[in-house]
């Protein structure tokens, strides 16, 4: 329903039962996928979002290459370009030049462009993996609750209520604090990333779970499910072969819409100081440091902030487009 951050996300709180009713694949002739693709192709805004995402992902994957072409290594100091008493780049505009596209980080003179580029790696990695986790748990729980009903549904629904009643951001911060710094055969940043994925992903599943449960509830009363059942199909078969294919659309839409929320969640955690260890750059972490220095080095704040904004916006645009394309009733 509501997002743990003090910022809203209309996607998550749309009443799932209302929002996607009738999305269950009753259309004959062209497959849902084909129709959706036709619609999506006409939606230039969504395509632009998709394109931006593609570029971001490529930039993240090929960050070393991008940085070699356009910047300096992200951890390399350029203290000679920093005014020692003022602690910021010498000259105007925070050191923005052809050599340093986004200027220099105060104090140590690192290349902000490279750091923003490398920041995309952590942000996207955590957001994708956490979303996958939420999706896996949420889908499983949602289908199980919706399909079996009865006490199973009650238990899972209460569990979802419970999760939604937790002040999640608070919890996430506290949890990161008490978890040891090596374990599960992992250590250092690998463990930190894994932990952030687990925490963000684990807290995200009820949002998807509720939606899938609602969809499953309506699907299981449909004729084709009855038909399968009367033919003697067992529950696992029905769930995997009959229900799941019909749930692909909402899963896809809400997964896409969960990614930007998780990008924001990761940024918020880093902003509050519980992200990965330095010198690995993250957008939230950069903003957190910039919050002390933005009055004298505005570029330190603006570029990581814009990076978050562009990423989240792109996913939101694509997600909206997907929803419109997959939902026959949408405008």
């Amino acid at each position: 329903m509501t997002v743990p951050l003090d910022l809203p996300d209309s996607a998550r709180r749309a009443k799932p039962e209302a929002g996607l009713a009738g999305m269950g694949g009753t259309i004959q002739g062209r497959s849902l996928g084909q129709i959706a693709w036709l619609r999506l192709r006409r939606d230039r805004v969504a395509l632009a979002g998709g394109l931006v995402i593609l570029v971001l992902v490529l930039v993240a994957i090929f960050a070393p290459l991008v940085v070699r072409l356009l910047g300096h290594p992200p951890t390399e100091f350029h203290e000679d370009l920093i005014d020692p008493s003022l602690q910021v780049a010498r000259g105007p505009r925070g050191g923005i030049s052809w050599d340093f596209l986004f200027g220099l980080e105060p104090v140590n003179g690192r290349d902000l462009f490279s750091r923003v580029v490398y920041g995309a790696r952590i942000s996207l990695l955590i957001a994708f993996l956490a979303t996958l986790l939420s999706m896996a748990i949420g889908t499983t729980m949602g289908i199980v609750a919706g399909y079996f009903g009865g006490w199973i549904d009650t238990v899972i629904s209460r569990l979802m209520d419970l999760f939604l009643a937790f002040p999640l951001l608070l919890f996430a911060i506290a949890l990161v604090g008490v978890i040891p710094d090596h374990g599960f055969g992992l250590s250092g940043n690998t463990l930190r990333v894994a932990m952030l994925v687990v925490i963000i992903g684990f807290f995200g599943w009820p949002y998807i779970g509720r939606i899938i449960r609602g969809q499953t509830l309506s699907l299981r009363e449909r004729e084709f499910v009855d038909a399968a059942r009367s033919l003697g199909a067992r529950s696992p078969y029905i769930i995997v072969r009959e229900l799941l294919p019909n749930l692909v659309a909402p899963i896809l839409v809400y997964t896409t819409l969960l990614i930007p929320t998780n990008v924001l969640f990761e940024a918020a955690l880093s902003f509050l100081g519980v992200g990965v260890q330095p010198p690995t750059p993250t957008w939230g972490g950069m903003l957190s440091e910039a919050s002390r220095l933005y009055t004298i080095a505005p570029n330190f704040m603006i570029f990581p902030g814009l990076a978050i904004f562009v990423t989240v916006l792109a996913f939101n645009l694509l997600g909206d487009g997907l929803r419109d394309a997959l939902d026959p009733r949408a405008r």
Binding site: L5, A268, S288, P298, I308, F309, V312, L313
Partner: peptide, 18 residues
């Protein structure tokens, strides 16, 4: 509106303060 939901508040907040 879309831009609004895509902005982290710690960014808009700092920007606004600045």
């Amino acid at each position: 509106a879309l831009a609004g939901v895509s902005l982290p508040i710690f960014f808009t907040g700092l920007l606004a303060l600045g």
